[in-house]
Design a protein around this nucleic acid. Structure first.
Length: 346
DNA sequence: AACCGAAGCAACCGCCCACGA
DNA sequence: ATCGTGGGCGGTTGCTTCGGT
C-alpha cells in the first residue's frame, strides 16, 4: 500500500494559492542552498507549507527554466505524437519539451488537445478513429449519397463533398472528411483494400438495416475506418516520390469530383496545374501545422494560400507536410496529419 | 450590468516506485 | 528479504477568468 501523504499530521499547514511572499521565500532558499530534502525544506525556508507543496510549486511554476506562454503548433504536434507513443506519461513527454512541465502538458492535453482530437473523430486514448456509434449512425447513407464512382470497384471515383456538407451535421461532416480522405487514398492501387471495404459498406447500406441484410452498418464502417487507417503499405525508400504523385493526383480528383475549384481547395501548384504539387527533390521541412503562408519555394514546388474559412478543405494548403512521408515511411502518419489539418482549421 | 455556464489552470490528493537501512 | 522513507507521477478538484445571454 502507499504510504500516508507527507503532509498528514502537519496541522496548520497552509494550503491553496501561493502568495508572492511565499514564492520569494522558496525561491531565495532554493537558489541559495538548493532544495535538499523537500520534507525539511519548508521549516528551513520559513514556510508554513508541506514539502510536497513546495516541490510542486517549484517544479511547476517557480523554476527559472520554465517556458511560459502558449504552446506552439510544433509543440502541440509533438505532444500528440509522443502521447500516441507513450500514453499519459506526462513526465516522459515533458522531457522532450524543454521548459514545459508535466503538469502544464497534462493540463493542456486535457483542455485543448484532447478535445481537438475528439473533434477530429480520433480517439484521444488510442489515437485511432473513433467508433462512436451514435456519431456513426446514418453515415452509411450519407456516404452512399455522396459516392460518385465510375463503376463498381472503380478506384478512381470521387466524393461529392458538397453533398456531404449539405447533409451531415458538423460533427459528422468532420468525421466524414477524415474518413473519406483516408479511404480516398485507395486511389492508389495498392490501397484497394480500403476501397473494397467501402464498397462493401455501401452495398450493405443499400441492403437495408442491420438484420435485414445481415450486416451491421456501423460495424462495417468501423471496419472500414480501421482498414483505411491500417491496411496501408509502408513506403520503401523509393516510394515517397510516387506516393506524393499519387496523392497529388488524388487531390486533383477531389477538385474535379466535388465541384470545388482549385482555389477553394486552397492550394495551387506551378506549371503542372495540379492543386498540389510536390517537388520530390525538395528537402524535408519541419512541420508547421498551421502554416498559413505555407511558403516553401526556396527549392521546392509547394506554394499555398489561405483558404476561405468556410471551405471544408481548409488546411490542405499545408500538404507540403507530406515531406514527413520520408521520416518513417508510414502512410498512417500522413493520414494522421491530414486529420490534424482538418481539425486545426475547422 | 448582472448572471450563469464553460473553459483554463494551479494546486492538491493519493498511489506507486526506488532506494537505503 | 523486508520495511520505512522520500520523491515522483497521474488523476482530480476547485478557484478564477472568460464569453454569452
Amino acid at each position: 500500500m502507499g504510504r500516508s501523504p507527507c503532509c498528514d499530521g502537519e496541522a496548520g499547514v497552509k494550503k491553496g494559492p501561493w502568495t508572492p511572499e511565499e514564492d520569494k521565500l522558496l525561491v531565495d532558499y532554493i537558489q541559495e542552498k538548493g532544495h535538499g530534502s523537500w520534507r525539511r525544506l519548508p521549516k528551513l525556508a520559513g514556510l508554513n507549507r508541506c514539502g510536497k507543496s513546495c516541490r510542486l510549486r517549484w517544479t511547476n511554476y517557480l523554476r527559472p527554466d520554465i517556458k511560459r506562454g502558449r504552446f506552439t503548433e510544433d509543440e502541440e504536434k509533438l505532444i500528440i505524437h509522443l502521447h500516441s507513443l507513450l500514453g499519459n506519461k506526462w513526465s516522459s513527454i515533458a522531457t522532450k519539451l524543454p521548459g514545459r512541465t508535466d503538469n502544464e502538458i497534462k493540463n493542456y492535453w486535457n483542455t485543448h488537445l484532447r478535445k481537438k482530437l475528439l473533434g477530429m473523430g480520433i480517439d484521444p486514448v488510442t489515437h485511432r478513429p473513433r467508433t462512436d456509434l451514435s456519431l456513426l449512425a446514418g453515415l452509411p447513407g450519407l456516404l452512399a449519397a455522396a459516392g460518385n464512382f465510375g463503376g463498381a470497384g472503380s478506384a478512381t471515383g470521387a466524393w461529392d463533398m458538397n453533398a456531404l456538407r449539405l447533409q451531415a451535421d458538423a460533427a459528422k461532416f468532420q468525421l466524414l472528411q477524415g474518413l473519406v480522405r483516408a479511404l480516398t487514398t485507395a486511389a492508389v492501387p495498392a490501397l484497394a483494400p480500403g476501397m473494397d471495404n467501402l464498397m462493401a459498406l455501401l452495398a450493405a447500406s443499400n441492403g437495408g438495416q442491420n438484420g435485414a441484410g445481415g450486416v451491421d452498418q456501423s460495424m462495417l464502417l468501423q471496419q472500414c475506418q480501421w482498414d483505411g487507417m491500417n491496411n496501408l503499405p509502408a513506403l520503401t525508400n523509393s516510394a515517397p516520390a510516387s506516393g506524393m504523385h499519387n496523392i497529388s493526383g488524388m487531390f486533383d480528383s477531389f477538385g474535379a469530383g466535388d465541384g470545388l475549384s482549385s482555389t477553394e481547395l486552397g492550394c495551387h501548384g506551378g506549371a503542372s496545374g495540379s492543386n498540389v504539387t510536390v517537388d520530390a527533390v525538395a528537402p524535408p521541412r519541419p512541420m508547421v501545422a498551421n502554416d498559413r503562408d505555407c511558403n516553401n519555394n526556396g527549392g521546392g514546388g509547394v506554394s499555398c494560400e489561405q483558404t476561405p474559412a468556410s471551405s471544408p478543405f481548409d488546411g490542405l494548403e499545408s500538404l507540403n507536410l507530406m515531406d514527413d512521408l520520408n521520416t518513417d515511411g508510414s502512410w498512417k502518419d500522413l493520414l494522421d496529419q491530414m486529420s490534424w489539418l482538418n481539425s486545426s482549421e475547422l
